[in-house]
Write a protein that binds this DNA or RNA. Structure first.
Lengths: 273, 273
DNA sequence: TGCATGTGTTCAGGTATACTGAACCCGCGG
DNA sequence: CCGCGGGTTCAGTATACCTGAACACATGCA
């Protein structure tokens, strides 16, 4: 682990919408390193275009990051595959869909399409992070991580409580993730915000790895009566995206793990891991 | 200059839409460093989320870059200010507008809005780079760089020729940039592609620094007859974006550099530097 | 099935590299 | 005019990184 690079990455992570501009002294204080060290980091990052100097010797994020992000989006088929399906989902339900990935233990929202019947969800937003233990997408993503990873995440970030329904103990989380893995989808039943629920399902790439999760967010009073239909909808949509990415559900009933395009559009059949 | 960070940045820059996935050996070959070194770089970058490991031990760009890019866009008022004005420009002219910044000597396109009368410009694209000496936005951006910077850029990337009109000598470039600086806008008269012209103007932030350039791209046969109107349009649009960013043209006629909101919408008056 | 080749990965030691802390500018406000 | 707070520079030292070879692992071919 190259510590210098680690520190450079730490520096980059300091820049947030709340504080998009940092000076040498501030960075030094934040990372608890001497000023000269912070200066060297900022200077080289700026020289590489990952940061840019403002006139007064302070620093902001640099356009190279935009460029890299664009090539990421360009080369990742995820968004390209998911967007049309999300659009259809929104058109059909009028609710809000989210697409999210896991980045060091937290949920990062990659896309968000708001429906016309939907309530404005302020918490989530494209490019924003949220803890994973409380949302539908978060639980789906955690469920397909090795348990030791989950433990490490929980130990560092804790299980913050947002509502009375939020999972707050490791034991609860273990059971819930087990359930999610078994059934192939997750619910968020007012666990992050009272009155807000969602159903979420995993998206797999051609190797079968879960690389993202998709969800349909619904006000509680519309969620409980329609839970069944919602579930099939999101599971089906996620499966369709997965297929777009080259994944075909192993048809284990026929044994041998022979790959056969399974077009069953029924309710989530349990998926091997 | 922290060499380790420099190398890390070099690694990131290797990832392109053409080759979005790299292995240890490939990186080692590309940077001419031993495998173990490349391994260490990739590993730490992945641990920091700037890269992600695919199943087979190869690497792709990581979602943290997307996150950082979003906070960049969020905190940079440039795009927010420019987009509506670009939209109006496109609506009025039916041509294509570009918004670009300079990133280590090259033009990086940040936004591109295509008009309905416009021809498809394949060369440019959001997140793509192009050499600076041949496009309108490029010349505007170079014109407001210290000349020694420009020299360094030219020495490293050269003056590649795209069409018979492309600037190919340093002397030509010096004169052209001088002219651009004087008049406050630049033309691209079929310098990058035969049959394609554009007019470009600088965008300044509140400190007066030129941070971006905006252009209107037009087929040659529509460009030459309308050059005057095009020029005022793009200069005016760019000025409006600059004002949105907090810049007000120094009204030097009244002396003392006293800041006064100048609402002149006439043709580009020459701007102090 | 077995071998050969190409991966990604690990490790120990020498050396170049990054960190330290104090001193230096420079602009701003009192 | 001076003091303060920022960013910047610099020499010496300790340390963190680079090296190169060996390892583990997968893949393809015979």
């Amino acid at each position: 682990m190259l510590q210098t690079v680690q520190k450079a990455a730490q520096v980059l992570r300091l820049f947030t919408p709340q504080q998009p501009e940092w000076g040498v002294t501030e960075v030094a204080a934040a990372l608890e390193i001497p000023k000269s060290g912070a200066h060297a980091l900022l200077r080289t990052l700026a020289a590489e275009g990952l940061l840019q100097r403002t006139g007064n010797g302070r620093y902001r994020l640099g356009w190279t990051l935009f460029e890299l992000s664009q090539t990421l989006l360009d080369s990742s088929s995820l968004l390209r595959a998911a967007r049309p399906i999300m659009e259809r989902l929104v058109a059909g339900w009028g609710e809000t869909t989210h697409l999210a990935v896991l980045v060091d233990g937290q949920v990062l929202y990659v896309e968000k399409l708001q429906g016309d019947r939907a309530l404005e969800i302020v918490l989530s937003g494209v490019g924003k992070r949220l803890p994973a233990h409380c949302s539908g997408v978060g639980k789906v993503l955690l469920a397909h991580q090795p348990w030791e990873n989950v433990l490490r995440i929980v130990e560092t970030t804790g299980l913050i409580s947002f509502t009375p329904n939020t999972i707050t103990t490791v034991e609860q989380l273990r059971e819930e993730l087990e359930r999610v893995r078994q059934q192939g989808f997750a619910y968020d039943q007012e666990e992050v915000m009272v009155g807000l629920c969602c159903a979420a399902a995993p998206i797999r790439d051609e190797s079968g790895q879960v690389i993202a999760a998709m969800s349909l967010s619904v006000p509680a009073y519309r969620f409980y009566p329609n839970r069944q239909r919602l579930t099939t909808a999101i599971v089906d949509a996620a499966r369709r995206v997965s297929e777009e990415l080259g994944y075909y559900q192993e048809d284990w009933a026929w044994g041998n793990g022979k790959r056969s395009k399974s077009r069953s559009s029924g309710l989530a059949t349990s998926v091997l891991t």
